[in-house]
């Protein structure tokens, strides 16, 4: 089946509204996700890009209502399953949580090796997961073997192994299989390839794409690596300082980025074709969650910043254009000339 390449969201599987994650710190409240709003379309691959400490892992945890203590998650996250009624994710009973997590919305973490119990075989992880969710274990294990085989793993051998006996790439693929064994609709992936070498990253990305297409999966793919999602995502959302600053179709975001931060990000990305002297890091430091700058949070690092930026926080959806490409910047029109893209071409798979 050829999947659609979404530009706008017309059948949302997630509606995230005013969602905030905050920690009470000694020096004040620390908002590590600040009233974000975003929709995730059914069947799309949404790439969420942000640097370390931009709140992207919190966004992932929020989608599973799995923010670790003492973090407090507020706002609204509505999940629309394929069939049945909409589910208010943040107001579920224990029992409902169990029916949604992993069964409907599943997650793959970075560091697959540390996601497995080192003293349990991979197969026992599958069996345990099936059993606690009251699935038919035998049938489930057949599915597990298929999944592993689809991921180019020797399923029997992998199931009998202990986590430390697998290589990084193997355990990452085994973890993906484990997250899919209950046939969820959504897979949230938090830096699933961070610990792998480049070749392995690319091949895992290809596998994820394949699996998403075959199984009609919705994937939220969280990463710091913008070029990596270029080949995978239908849409890209850029997080900066705990807020989304730009959302749009992958190709548009990569070639015609509207937000100065996104462009700076693209310019800082190592690329074989870019001359070294044109590659530049973004000046300044990412903001601290306790004291996010007033106004536009990017203004201290932005070449365009003026008094307006210091005062007013630009909203993300001032007016949603046809192509669904929006950015939170007061001076969207001026961005292309002030922050030219050094990167000549982004390869997006066709």
């Amino acid at each position: 089946m050829q999947r659609k390449r979404t530009k706008t969201v017309d059948d949302p599987i997630f509606e995230v509204r005013d969602t905030t994650v905050s920690f009470d710190m000694e020096r004040g409240e620390s908002k590590v996700l600040n009233e974000v709003n975003i929709d995730v379309d059914r069947g799309e691959v949404l790439g969420v890009v942000g640097e370390s400490g931009s709140g992207k892992s919190m966004f992932a945890s929020a989608l599973l209502d799995a923010v670790v203590d003492p973090g407090v998650l507020t706002g609204d996250i509505t999940f629309h399953p394929e069939s049945g009624e909409a589910i208010d994710l943040l107001n579920l009973s224990q029992e409902q949580v169990k029916q949604v997590r992993w069964e409907e919305i599943s997650m793959v973490f970075q560091g697959a090796m540390s996601s497995f119990n080192p003293t349990m075989s991979i197969g026992d992880h599958f069996r345990e997961t099936l059993a606690v969710h009251d699935y038919d274990v035998e049938e489930g294990m057949e599915r597990a073997e298929e999944l592993l085989a689809d991921l180019y793993l020797e399923s029997e051998q992998v199931l009998d192994s202990y986590p430390h006996e697998l290589s990084g790439g193997m355990s990452q693929r085994a973890l993906i299989a484990l997250s899919l064994v209950l046939e969820p609709e959504v897979l949230v992936m938090d830096e699933p390839t961070a610990a792998l070498d480049l070749l392995m990253q690319r091949s895992i990305i290809r596998l994820i794409r394949q699996i998403a297409d075959e199984r009609d999966l919705t994937i939220v793919f969280i990463t710091h690596d913008l070029p990596l999602v270029a080949n995978l995502a239908d849409r890209i959302a850029v997080l900066y300082a705990f807020e989304f600053v730009e959302v749009g179709p992958a190709y548009e975001v990569l070639t015609e980025a509207k937000h100065p931060y996104t462009r700076a990000l693209l310019n800082s990305t190592p690329n074989l074709e870019t001359p070294r002297e044109q590659m530049r890091p973004i000046e300044g430091a990412a903001p601290d969650p306790v004291s996010v700058p007033n106004g536009c949070s990017y203004h201290p690092r932005c070449p365009l910043a003026d008094a307006t930026c210091e005062r007013d926080d630009p909203p993300l959806e001032s007016d949603t254009p046809e192509d669904g490409h929006v950015a939170a910047c007061h001076y969207v029109e001026k961005v292309p000339e002030t922050v030219p893209l050094t990167l000549q071409e982004v390869k997006v798979n066709e």
Binding site: E51, S52, G53, D225, L226, T269, P281, I282, G284, P287
Partner: peptide, 11 residues
Amino acid sequence: MAETNSTFDAT
């Protein structure tokens, strides 16, 4: 976390 690495690889 709040260090000055602004390239994306937090190495």
